[in-house]
Design a protein around this nucleic acid. Structure first.
Ligand code: MN
Ligand code: MN
Ligand code: ZN
Ligand code: ZN
Lengths: 150, 150
DNA sequence: ATCTAATTGAGACTAAATCTCAATTACGCC
DNA sequence: GGCGTAATTGAGATTTAGTCTCAATTAGAT
């Protein structure tokens, strides 16, 4: 069992909540993902393990996990949230290809620092931030160039 | 009439579209705003001028205006889009107070350049980006401190 | 004034997410 | 191992921003 699953279980116990089979299945699947996923993805995977799991329970467990900081929710502007494991991973931002939808992660310390500077200057205390760059990935650029050369 | 309204009218003519009274009302109200607004705000203002204006027409005109680049749409993650006039304004990003909801605009050239650097390094061509900082504004910080001192 | 294609308004529809509530279940206690 | 009870669940209703449909209206060319 991964350390984030153990944190989840400990949290459940601490708060006097109950460790149900549904929560166990859903949390395990969510916390061990490598890539971004949607609530609907998670519902489908969960139902492979237990047909009866409801959409509501998936959303309720996603809330628990994000409140706990074990998952992070991401809004890429396509009308639904994505999620990714947050535990033990470093903060990063995202660059999204408008053609193929691929999402690449990056981290830039200078940008992070400059954000703090800006916030300081404006008298804000920073809680978190969201930075997305939208554009065309290498593969899609090359594909487009080829088409243009026809 | 503002220059962005004239651009809108010219565009309508060019494309063989029709300059209806509804489009005129909605575009004037949208393009002369100083602050961020929602589709629903715009519907309410439009109906003050012409009771019959429909939700659908407001959304349709918002699409025209954003496609034209006269408006920009902004997603602050609260489940609906905001809009702001884009014509003749410089690009800027936003810092949002999680307590009072106030939105402050800022611009940081170094951040903009670093974003390009990052994209270059990853082989992306940049189309646009979205940077939001979320935190606590000066006023809300001071209010909280006072409460704590009680 | 006439014609016709673009536009409109009303309301149906969509889809993600939340809510409701009766039925089920985890778990502390014996 | 059973009991009691409060937390949890599933089914499906609801919400809400936004889109779609289509018959009726209208802008603008002739
Ligand atoms: Mn990520
Ligand atoms: Mn702005
Ligand atoms: Zn791509
Ligand atoms: Zn504030």
């Amino acid at each position: 069992m991964s350390s984030s699953q153990e944190k989840f279980n400990a949290f459940i116990r601490e708060k006097g909540l109950r460790l149900t089979s549904q929560r166990t299945v859903i949390a395990r699947l969510a916390l061990n993902r490598e890539t971004h996923f949607t609530a609907d993805d998670l519902l489908a995977w969960s139902r492979e393990k237990d047909k009866g799991i409801s959409r509501a329970t998936v959303y309720r467990t996603l809330s628990l996990l994000t409140d706990l900081g074990l998952l992070e929710s991401l809004d890429f502007g396509d009308g639904r949230l994505c999620y990714e494991p947050a535990e033990g991973r470093n903060h990063h931002d995202h660059i999204v290809c408008l053609h193929c939808g691929s999402i690449t992660e990056f981290h830039c310390n200078e940008i992070e620092e400059l954000q703090c500077d800006v916030a300081d200057r404006l008298g804000f205390r920073v809680d978190h931030h969201s930075l997305r760059i939208y554009g065309t990935c290498k593969d899609c650029s090359e594909r487009t160039e080829c088409n243009e050369q026809r």
